[in-house]
Design a protein around this nucleic acid. Structure first.
Lengths: 342, 342
DNA sequence: GCCTCGACGTTATACGTAAAACCCCGAGGT
DNA sequence: ACCTCGGGGTTTTACGTATAACGTCGAGGC
């Protein structure tokens, strides 16, 4: 069956480079490792680098990390990559990692379906650290146990146990939304909230409530829904068919829910934003794809990934990761307008 | 500064397990490797497994792959994760990989921005194989050079050089779209095509052209645009403002473009689908978020990933990967209707 | 009684790298 | 003349695993 042994096109090793350059393997390691100043002459170093380039030498990663005990690999734990926000977080983290010759491996926790597997089983190599979204609830337990440097994304500042934390100024975002709507004249709000119980959403709820309560005569109701378009539409339909005066503004925890809400409004024969204003959160691609385009809060997702990775690198190097929330910005578009004269 | 040396909470090694079980390290390796039948007694094997479990032993991945020369890691090369389609491909591939104790690491090729980096630089470990989308054009060159088992996704069947191939039956999808529209009575088509020049899009164009040409009196124009909502809208606006009779159906290469096209139609004061029908491709979440919901072709993205990974595993085991295109299905929704009487 | 043989292990080795420990040699000090 | 010192390397070792090669011991054949 399989008898033909290949002519072994094995990758060149540091020893091959050494042979080619006429030095020992150790010298190659020193030169390529960058710590040769004062130990190897410049000319020899240059010769070694030349041979390495010629042979197309690439250090064997397994050997290196076996020797060093560090893998230059981080685990990013997110709920699901199909959520554009987290795909962008990954992109940002991977970009910073690449600059520092680091790798990022993913653990998208199996959302509902499938067994809640060990987040570390997905990591091929041993890990140097972990970056985890607080929304990946099912994996957080195992993460605490491990003695790994942990950077939390968008998690409760009160909750210690992480080496660093990267947060968005969600509260400010929600305040901007509310002030925008109040400024337009809205007084009857309904909060279409995510059913997921995590810090970010709790903050949204609180900031909205506080902003509304500070205005005499303004009222706020709340309805929750899972994070998908259909669920958002159904929840909004329930709102619109409940007795009493309709809200004039639907404040949604997420663009997905907002898209669903818009559909519900129109199915009721009403118009967005003429009859009811709708706001989203996140500024996904979706926000400008629907009509009217959504007034929403732009979250710098890539920056979250970048800062997360940077913080992890800081922790690994023994530096202190600088804190500070990332600012967010209201993007006013077509889904909000003054309430109807009524 | 950093003087306190930790009490070394190093992970237990196979030697620790050996000590605990009162055997040699080799025996531990045999037992845990599963090839102990006839070499180790059942009772000893059981004892070893017990100690391993107690100590929480997890084999050192770096050491293992150094010894074995295989890393049980595959590289998935895609254009961008923020494209929902590829996020789903990843999800499918990762799921199958996990079942076989394999890992998947990503190379999302930097779309335009940033230097076109070496796809292998992102791979921490040496790789056992590669799965690559034909849309990741910038990385394909380097992939050819490497002597790695390569599985291509959605690539030209004529193009040899891959060990296996996983394709969607794109042509059939486009035929379904065209027949749906022809059946509704449409005769004037414009193809809003992706500006990206890859096999999938070439197939879409050909299938559409052939299907339209087979009907006497049916006409087809083509306009291309980059894959984003705004570009789609602008391209569609150009179509709608060009002289001559307007098309009654806009066939788009992608849901993103279709969403943009819908916006263009309405900006012109026309309605979808009453005045102009619009079709998409992919069935992204977007398709049901916009209004009207898009008639589109559902692509089994997760299955593409699953089949891709399965094929790679087959190749690695020396098995023959079974070929066969994945079927796709038209999903008729609200963006298509009979053309206006006119 | 000697040889064989299978069952059950053990000892030894190699994978490719980083880095500690060592070595050699010529210049400079006394 | 002898010792020191530092520049420019080399030798050696260890990382944790998989596995080839090697023992040992008791039963069974002749």
């Amino acid at each position: 069956m399989s008898s033909a042994r290949q002519p072994a096109p094995t990758r060149p090793t540091s020893r091959d480079v050494a042979r080619a350059a006429g030095v020992s393997q150790a010298t190659v390691s020193l030169v390529l490792g960058g710590k040769w100043r004062g130990r190897v002459s410049t000319s020899t170093a240059e010769r070694v680098r030349g041979s390495a380039r010629e042979l197309g030498y690439r250090p064997n990663f397994a050997a290196r990390s076996l020797r060093m005990g560090r893998t230059r690999t981080a685990l990013l734990v997110v709920p699901a990559l199909t959520n554009e926000f987290f795909a962008r977080v990954y992109t940002g983290a991977a970009a910073v990692a690449a600059e520092h010759d680091f790798g990022v491996v993913l653990y998208p926790s199996p959302d509902g379906t499938g067994p809640a597997r060990d987040p570390f089983a997905s990591a091929r190599a041993a890990l140097d650290g972990v970056i985890a979204s607080s929304m990946a609830a099912d994996a957080l337990g195992a993460l605490r146990g491990a003695e790994l440097p942990l950077v939390m994304l968008d998690s409760d500042p009160e909750d210690h146990g992480a080496a660093a934390r990267v947060n968005l100024d969600i509260a400010d975002g929600m305040r901007q939304v509310t002030e925008h709507l109040l400024g337009l004249g809205h007084r009857r709000f309904t909060h279409l909230a995510s059913a997921v119980d995590t810090w970010t959403f709790a903050v949204r709820a609180r900031a909205l409530r506080e902003a509304v309560e500070s205005v005499p005569g303004a009222v706020l109701h709340t309805v929750t829904a899972p994070l998908d378009v259909t669920a958002g539409r159904e929840a909004a339909e329930k709102i619109l068919s409940s007795p009493g005066p309709l809200p004039t503004a639907l404040v949604c925890d997420d663009d997905i829910l907002a898209a669903g809400a818009c559909k519900a409004v129109r199915r009721r024969g009403l118009r967005v934003p003429d009859d009811i204003s709708v706001t989203g959160f996140d500024d996904l691609a979706l926000a400008t794809a629907v009509e009217p385009e959504l007034t929403t809060v732009r979250l710098p997702a890539e920056q979250v990934g970048e800062r997360g990775m940077t913080a992890l690198l800081d922790v690994l190097e023994g530096r202190r990761a600088e804190p500070g929330d990332l600012p967010v910005r209201l993007v006013a578009r077509g889904s909000t307008a003054p309430p109807p004269r009524a």
